[in-house]
């Protein structure tokens, strides 16, 4: 198990290096130089050059890559030119919203999907199965911004249970902050829960046809016992894969929901960075997201091995 994790960590590091080169290269290739953009069309070449030096954009490509990557390692993400503050500060402000929101949505989606998928698989072909499958179909089909607005309309405008948007910050206490994130998390979780429940159901049904389920039944286990004791863990591999993918998606893909609820998250930061040519913000935030995705993949890989002993002996 430890060997497995070590190998995975090694490949994680290599992936990160490769990803950083790609991110850096893409930003290099994109037309539009930050300095000339900032100074406008009438700037003299000398002024542009001076600003480039000031921003640390001069020097050869490898030099700049090393300076940038080295900065990332020490937590120096550079200076945003639109906000005039260190990028690390911008990210830190937002990451404490985006990560809790992502986790909140993911927990909600898992907590909903597991029992729903399980019930649906156990009652295959019965009315409850059909109803659940119909509901999840709807959950996938409904655009989540529309669902978000519906939630606002019902729970904020009519019932006044939640505020319609904004985020008070964690300084004001755990509960007010969590409350502010609840409606966005529900809006994000609905389609994810629907997908996860369907994957869970089909994976369980697939597992239930396996020979070892028949062996378990021949030992005297009831249908339900065979499902819980033998099928569940075997059915987890595809489910874990989906959960990992959902985390990565939610972390930066929540931008529309962030807009609906006026929440300053990472998605919004990248979007602004792109529209305002604040490339240093884009570069560093994308790299951070890449890191998060690779880290989650690593965690999912280790979880596979925890679930399935066959993966532990393989390298």
């Amino acid at each position: 198990m430890i060997r497995f994790a070590t190998f995975r960590l090694l490949s994680l590091t290599l992936s990160l290096i490769a990803a950083s080169i790609v991110v850096f290269a893409v930003i290099e290739i994109i037309p539009g130089d930050t300095a000339s953009y900032m100074l406008g069309l009438n700037a003299t070449p000398e002024a542009v050059e001076a600003l480039r030096n000031q921003l640390g954009l001069s020097g050869s490509i490898p030099e700049r890559y090393i300076a940038w990557a080295g900065g990332l390692l020490t937590g120096d993400f550079g200076q945003s030119y639109t906000y005039r503050v260190p990028v690390s500060e911008l990210i830190l402000d937002r990451i404490w919203i985006s990560i809790p929101l992502t986790l909140y949505a993911l927990i909600l989606s898992t907590v909903i999907a597991f029992p729903v998928g399980l019930i649906s698989a156990a009652r295959r072909g019965k009315l409850s199965d059909y109803s659940i499958m119909g509901a999840t179909q709807l959950g996938i089909a409904i655009p989540n911004f529309w669902f978000a607005m519906l939630l606002v309309l019902i729970f904020a405008v009519n019932l006044h249970w939640f505020s319609a948007g904004g985020f008070p910050g964690w300084a004001g206490g755990f509960w007010p902050a969590t409350k502010a994130l609840t409606l966005p998390a529900i809006a994000l979780a609905l389609p994810q829960a629907s997908i996860l429940a369907r994957v869970m159901r089909s994976s369980l049904l697939e597992t239930l046809t396996q020979d070892y389920i028949r062996s378990a039944r021949a030992k005297g286990l009831t249908r339900g016992q065979a499902l819980r004791r033998h099928a569940l863990r075997n059915a987890m591999i595809p489910v874990l894969t989906i959960i990992g993918m959902q985390f990565s998606f939610l972390l930066a893909g929540a931008i529309i929901i962030e807009n609906v609820f006026f929440i300053p998250g990472l998605g919004k930061l990248i979007f602004q960075g792109i529209t305002q040519r604040d490339l240093i913000v884009v570069e560093s935030t994308v790299m951070l997201l890449v890191f998060a995705v690779i880290l989650v993949t690593f965690i999912v890989d280790v979880a596979y091995a925890a679930v399935d002993p066959r993966l532990r002996t393989r390298k």
Binding site: Y212, K219, R233, N234
Partner: peptide
């Protein structure tokens, strides 16, 4: 089942739960 009547099957490669 398993108490009065036990049963074994053809395919031993898949008859056991791989994760237990």
């Amino acid at each position: 089942r398993g108490n009065e009547i036990g049963m074994i099957f053809q395919e031993p490669m898949t008859a056991l739960n791989p994760v237990k």
